[in-house]
Write a protein that binds this DNA or RNA. Structure first.
Lengths: 402, 402
DNA sequence: CTTATTAAATATAGGTTCTAGATTTAGTTA
DNA sequence: TAACTAAATCTAGAACCTATATTTAATAAG
């Protein structure tokens, strides 16, 4: 491969140009030579030659519908090319603490199959088996064989450094990140990353132009994926975005998440019998005092629930204030399964931020991705790696040796 | 110029290779074709052709001392090339609140002249005039004319975004960053950046392998330059590293810096007459109760001064804790003019960090650059821009039209 | 049904750039 | 002075891309 900062030969130039056209194909799926000419500045002869190469390599196909698909056009009909979006596949896995979710997508990012299972245990071996099972299940559903997979991207609830490793010394992290590459050694390359980081990548892909923001997973514990100046922050050991610092922030108190606290505070109020008799929360058995129940009651006007929501909103505002004032992010996206239910909390927090900051006040909003953020981020991570270095993957075609 | 993601022609390939050799020259100053061959993988013919180009453009010279300088060697003596380190110049300016410092360096980064002045006032026009005066002074000392300058890099005590602008709405920031490019319009390109950011770049250049760290300017106010994963963070409006968040951190209290607080607390103790009669601080008139005096007294064993140092150390530890735990930086470098004097404070803070963190404990250390950090960082900023895009500059040679 | 028109595809020639290998050159060493 | 050595130079040759002319495959008009 290339040494760093290295000079190049004509062959390498060809490789660069093949890559440029392939990138265009990945973005456009079906395209004409003229479009590539406009996008790259290359001559028609050159572009057609590059397309020939890509056809030979199995990345694109020539299709015959140049005229039918397009609007009316005079002159000789143009060849039309189409990305072979089944030339390879990307597998995305959210290996959460209690559940594993897997999805398989084609090269355009279209999800072909998706599944979720609970994991019975937190031990590494159990998690490895569960992840492999989920992946085998989606591959079977989508009729994809492991050798057709370009890339497996796994999200885990632990800090992960640039090499996919979690810091030593914490058994929990090693259990959460128990060496997935070995599990998927027949499925192309495997990448492991932190779940909040992947969720942030998903948001980045869905918010064009938003280049500095934080994605705050906020269910049981706070954890942030930080994107500043268009880049995801990792830090020395992958610990960027860990929220232990909240222990020493006034008004934030701890890194426990919104879901956890809503439940705890409701249960505490119930035990302390401070809930007014008329409160909706008082009607529920303690086992059903979930965060969602609290938020729903608050939305219904219940004063006790509203009190909890207000406290949570102030706490969330503190968290957002920290991130915004240290990193100058323009938006904090509250993500995770409870994000949408927590809209009342977010509204309260946004009001607090309005007081804290001079305009322009940073945005605070719930993610629209719900519980799928991590899986979608894993997919996005894989797609962006594909876009960055498409030629480092080899298209799979039945009957053709790789 | 190039469209993004664009394909290339043979001419552009040549340009890339010329750039690669020039980068080598900038790093090596004097070199042989064989070395470039080894570094780039190119043929001798090609490398010599590229060197011819660079000679013609005025970037390098052929020098005759191939044998003399080198160790014994058999065979035909190799041509030796040398960077024309006076093909252009880089001007670095630290436009601080009270003082302006300027330096001019050649392409190798060797400083040719340096000067410092106090600024009489905080108004934009005054600062512009002072900066221009300082630059004219160093240029005259180094016998450099403005048109020979490639790049002027100015550090200011205000947030600065990627375009060199400071956020509107704060008059102070506009005064600090009053449109320097117009002042240096005869000196090549002008770049403006935040002072702490530049100090961080200086540290980055001097600590190879250190890729995630914070540089904490800590004199009158805390301000951090954040480098994570090898990149300087800016944020949406250039506000990354602003330390206003300390207002809500327990034990940190405010964003006032070590120098400010040491002085304030010593004066307060003096006014409250709580200094023991034997204390070295009690001997001093209040106007001389500087931070340096407090640190010196503490080093000399004075108990009252030691008390102040301990309080400062705990506060500094909090600041470092915040940065480390949110960004996973491996080191916090205390910079600014008082950094070295503040060693007792740093020692105290390091001891606190030892308790707070599990191993590996993040490092905390004083910068070795003293008050020059910002100027050196501005120079480093210019050099790295030169290294990234050398061919975007045109060498200056007397008698040759540009 | 033929002809004009149009735009894409193809073919041809030419220029740049790099590589590979043979030959020459400029020194040292014996 | 001759042998040796490694750099420089010279000569082909191959891979690209471009520019321009020619051909081709469609539609539209007469």
């Amino acid at each position: 491969m290339l040494r760093e900062d290295v000079a190049t030969s004509p062959q390498l130039l060809r490789r660069m140009n093949v890559g440029a056209v392939l990138r265009y194909a990945l973005a456009a799926q079906t395209f004409l030579a003229s479009e590539v000419m406009a996008a790259t500045g290359l001559t028609r002869s050159t572009v057609l030659g590059l397309c020939d190469t890509l056809v030979a390599q199995g990345w694109i196909d020539e299709v015959a519908d140049s005229r039918e698909a397009g609007q009316y056009s005079k002159g000789r009909p143009a060849r039309r090319y189409r990305l072979r979006d089944r030339a390879g596949y990307i597998v995305a896995v959210d290996a959460g603490q209690h559940t594993v979710t897997a999805a398989v997508a084609d090269l355009r990012g279209t999800i072909l199959a998706r599944t979720g299972h609970t994991i019975d245990g937190v031990q590494g071996p159990v998690r490895r088996t569960a992840a492999r099972g989920a992946v085998d299940s989606v591959l079977a559903h989508a009729d994809v064989r492991p050798e057709e997979v370009f890339l497996v991207v796994v999200g885990v609830p632990a800090p992960v450094d640039g090499q996919g490793h979690s810091p030593a010394g914490h058994d929990y992290w090693q259990h959460m990140n128990p060496g997935f590459p070995a599990v998927f050694d027949d499925c192309g390359r495997t990448m492991v990353d932190n779940d909040a980081n992947l969720a942030a990548l998903a948001e980045h892909a869905r918010n064009p132009g938003l280049d500095s923001f934080a994605t705050l997973l906020s269910g049981e514990r706070f954890g942030a994926g930080l994107v500043v100046d268009g880049r995801l922050l990792r830090g020395r050991h992958g610990g960027a975005g860990e929220m232990r610092l909240l222990d020493i922030v006034q008004g934030a108190g701890s890194s426990e998440g919104l879901g956890f606290l809503a439940r705890e505070w409701a249960v505490a109020a119930s035990k302390a019998r401070t809930l007014p008799p008329g409160s909706a929360l008082a009607q529920l058995p303690r086992a059903q005092l979930s965060a969602e129940a609290v938020f729903a009651a608050a939305a219904g006007g219940d004063a006790a629930a509203q009190g909890i929501v207000d406290r949570l909103g102030e706490r969330l505002a503190r968290v957002a204030q920290i991130l915004v004032s240290l990193l100058d992010v323009e938006k904090v996206i509250v993500a995770g399964a409870i994000a949408q239910a927590a809209q009342p909390v977010i509204d309260k927090a946004a009001a607090v931020l309005d007081d804290v900051f001079q305009p322009p006040v940073p945005e605070l909003a719930a993610s629209t991705l719900g519980a799928d953020g991590v899986v979608l981020g894993a997919l996005e991570c894989g797609l962006s790696m594909l876009r960055d270095e498409p030629l480092s993957f080899a298209p799979f075609r039945p009957g053709v040796a790789r």
